[in-house]
Write a protein that binds this DNA or RNA. Structure first.
Length: 509
RNA sequence: CGGAGCGUAGCGCAGCCUGGUAGCGCAUCUGGUUUGGGACCAGAGGGUCGUGUGUUCGAAUCACACCGCUCCGACCA
């Protein structure tokens, strides 16, 4: 059968790269590990950003912007934090180049007194501001967000999932009490969960990370975990309760109503362009990307079937008025994004380009449609009947007045339902001992395995290290401990001791 | 940074073993024929063969070094 891609999801890693390329999402750049995000991919990011920004503001946060460069000494203030990020930081040491023996090199005379780190995250530089901004309990809570680029020198980059430079949003808040900061941490996790499910149509499981997976410097780290079509987990967003660790390191203090000085409790939380990788691996199929309408830069694309004949004029005029009518509708709280594709390439090629890019509805209009007041459409979420492409003709009036919005909604919810069913079906709950884990995950890691949900005794320290090592041998990690926990627990899968918590384990990106 | 594989036209690849000055498919451009759906015919353009050094009369081909990419580890939003 002829597919729009030349790889299938059987070869998931190759397939992912093919989708990123053929759907015009992004490409590699001359800079190792850093990607060029192309208009279609960036369009997805902008929509995602727009919606999430609205949610962040609706929960009382304000946007700011802090410098890209952080003095090295700032990073060094929090011990765990510096240790966690030391191995992946880009550092600016000079401010001038010099031509020495025909080679441009950093000018030795222009060495910075204090090196600047390119932010891998902004806790320290924002904390420095917080220390100045917070004086009284009346200044709290301080609720800040920034949209920014950050740099982490990762060993193995992968477009969208792990790039040297990436775009994200990082929230930073300071609170008078621990309880309030914990509430904030959980509230933003819930914002992420709701956003992932409703906007990205990507089901996730919200939970708490085990001690060994915590953000450097955090007291607790929470995450939302999504399951990709190869059964691997993708950490799609994190929310950290930082306690007073950063406040103590950076002297973020306030005077309470009794006149005493107290350290703030702080939080931080973020999601990144990784979400786009998650969308690709959640919804893509063997014909390319399938975008949830809420984040599709073009939700309905009209492809005129032109033949270099006089009736082309009529077809084009018909298409234009169709696109105008569609654009005056609104879906998901925004005007419908419809496009008339007038690019001077063959119509058939246009169709397949939009299939690969994942435009939710593709309409093809020929002279007979124009004359008869009809349209012919394809739904990207239901593209084929066996090998054949499903192409449906209906009246233009019915489409505009009824079907268009209905279909966009159906596609949004259908993609979610499909992914949700896969997630639910792929979490195995009946493995009760370590031998069962070993036999379940035996064999190639290309095989679809999904996750296990098991009980454990929540060990810490050396006992947790032992668990981590045990899991690592099977390439497994603990994803999180889901927020919804049962009342009773089976025995710990690692030790046989009484269980105290259920956790998800699986392979991950 | 360790192990493996790969760098030849925009993309996918052949040629390398056995050295003789670069080829195929798709894409692109031009002309024509087609036209309810991924068309056909003819012609054309496009390549410092990843970079450098060496061996040689001669290197895509052999040797060495470096760079980059992909996969597997360590790291991770």
């Amino acid at each position: 059968m002829q597919r729009a891609l030349n790889v299938t999801r059987e070869h998931f890693a190759d397939w992912y790269q093919a989708v990123v390329r053929d759907a015009d999402m992004a490409e590699t750049s001359p800079v190792r590990g850093a990607m060029v995000i192309k208009p279609w991919g960036y369009g997805v990011w902008e929509l995602l950003q727009q919606d999430l920004d609205r949610r962040i503001k609706a929960t009382g946060h304000e946007n700011c912007y802090f410098p890209l460069f952080i003095p090295l000494s700032f990073i060094a203030k929090e011990a765990e934090h510096v240790e966690g990020f030391a191995k992946e930081m880009a550092i600016v040491t000079h401010h001038r180049l010099k031509n020495i023996d025909g080679k441009l090199v950093p000018d030795p005379a222009a060495k910075l007194e204090e090196p600047l780190v390119v932010r891998p995250t902004s806790e320290t530089i924002i904390g420095d501001a917080f220390a100045r901004w917070v004086k009284s309990h009346r200044d709290l809570p301080l609720l800040i967000n920034q949209w920014a680029n950050v740099v982490r020198w990762e060993m193995r980059p992968r477009l969208f999932l792990r790039t040297t430079e990436f775009l994200w949003q990082e929230g930073h808040t300071a609170h008078a009490t621990e309880a309030e900061a914990i509430e904030e941490t959980r509230k933003m996790l819930e914002v992420y969960r709701d956003f992932a499910e409703h906007v990205l149509a990507m089901p996730v499981i919200a939970g708490e990370k085990p001690e060994n997976e915590r953000f450097p410097g955090a007291v607790n780290t929470y995450s939302i975990e999504a399951m990709m079509q190869d059964g691997k987990a993708l950490q799609a967003g994190t929310s950290h309760f930082l306690g007073t660790h950063f406040a103590e390191a950076q002297n973020i203090r306030f005077q309470n109503d009794a006149g005493g000085m107290e350290f703030c409790n702080t939080t931080s939380w973020g999601v990144s362009t990784r979400l786009i990788g998650g969308v690709i691996m959640t919804h893509g199929d063997d014909d390319g990307l399938r975008l949830p309408p809420a984040i599709a830069p073009r939700q309905i694309v009209v492809v005129p079937m032109l033949r270099d004949k006089p009736e082309d004029e009529e077809v084009l005029a018909y298409c234009k008025s169709l696109v105008e009518a569609l654009s005056s509708l609104s879906a998901f709280g925004y005007p419908v994004r419809a496009l008339l594709d007038t690019k001077k390439i063959k119509s058939a090629e246009k169709r397949w380009n939009w299939v690969r890019r994942g435009a939710p509805i593709i309409i093809e209009i020929g002279p007979r449609d124009a004359a008869g007041g009809n349209i012919t459409y394809m739904r990207r979420d239901d593209l084929r009947d066996g090998d054949k492409v499903k192409s449906v003709a209906i009246s233009r009036r019915e489409f505009i007045e009824e079907k268009a919005l209905q279909m966009l909604n159906e596609i949004q919810h259908g993609l979610y339902a499909e992914a949700k069913a896969r997630l639910d079906d792929s979490i195995k709950r009946d493995v009760t001992d370590w031998a069962g884990v070993e036999s379940y995950f035996a064999g190639s890691d290309d095989e679809f395995k999904g996750w296990l949900r098991v009980s454990w005794g929540k060990p810490s320290g050396a006992a947790l290290d032992a668990v981590e090592t045990k899991l690592k041998a099977l390439k497994l990690t603990i994803r999180n401990a889901p927020l919804d926990q049962p009342a009773e627990f089976a025995a710990c899968i690692f030790s046989g001791a009484p269980g105290v918590e259920e956790i998800l384990i699986g392979r991950s990106y």
